[in-house]
């Protein structure tokens, strides 16, 4: 397969899957912002939206692309970082960290936090909604809204989400800009612009995702 060839092609694949996942995060956030509506309205609308998505064949195909992207992105990252770890030198005194940001150096760690969070996220919401037993709302729709609201009544669960979302934010700030570099964007003007866009993207997305659990915790 072409992408197994070398570190450059593997990074291309990580960049493409990463950008696809970043695009998904926008759509996912926009959908989830419906949770901020007044409770009664939010319940019916959010459950209606969830059924709409799970009933669509187009979304089904996209979701398989998403699962594949997550796996490829994670496996490639793990493979490359493990390989490079063996190749780099160890120093008795090491101050190499002065030259780069901590989150750029720890993308793997941030990625691991995000992956662990995804396992919890899938187990608590995706799995019960798809395969578990779940109550119905006034319109006879699967009541995902109540499942979410109940989950965010525990303070530790909100903190768990906050940590994961902060990790995601920093991962995005470096990841989006790094992806464009790996794909070969070398114009000084556009690379500067993309760096700014990545920063704003990471901040807006993490703030957007942070508001939801905090709002649900306070309001219930």
């Amino acid at each position: 397969m072409w992408y197994f060839k070398n570190a450059l092609t593997r990074k291309n694949l990580m960049a493409l899957t990463g950008l696809f996942l970043s695009f998904f995060l926008i759509i996912h956030l926009v959908g989830n912002l419906q949770l901020l509506l007044p409770a009664k309205e939010a319940q019916l609308q959010y459950n209606w939206y969830s059924e709409l998505l799970s009933g669509s064949w187009f979304i089904k195909i996209v979701s398989y692309g998403l699962y594949a992207s997550i796996l490829i992105h994670a496996v490639d990252a793990f493979y490359l970082s493990q390989k490079s770890r063996m190749l780099s030198g160890q120093y008795a005194k090491d101050r190499r960290n002065r030259a780069s940001s901590w989150y750029a150096r720890h993308m793997m760690l941030l990625g691991l936090i995000i992956f662990a969070f995804l396992v919890i996220h899938f187990k608590d919401f995706w799995y019960p909604y798809k395969f578990g037993e779940i109550g119905l709302d006034a319109d006879g729709q699967k009541d995902l809204y109540s499942l979410v609201v109940v989950a965010f009544q525990d303070w530790w669960y909100v903190i768990l989400y906050a940590v994961a979302i902060l990790a995601l934010g920093f991962h995005l700030i470096h990841g989006v800009f790094s992806a464009t570099r790996s794909l070969g964007l070398y114009s000084p003007f556009y690379t500067k612009m993309v760096k700014g866009v990545s920063l704003v993207f990471g901040i807006i997305l993490s703030l957007g995702y942070l508001i939801i659990p905090i709002y649900l915790f306070i309001n219930n």
Partner: peptide
């Protein structure tokens, strides 16, 4: 470069700084 035991680039940009 790939065959010579060099690692991959993660765009930390530390190389340019030093």
């Amino acid at each position: 470069m790939e065959n010579l035991e060099f690692g991959h680039c993660t765009n930390t940009e530390a190389c340019e700084v030093e």
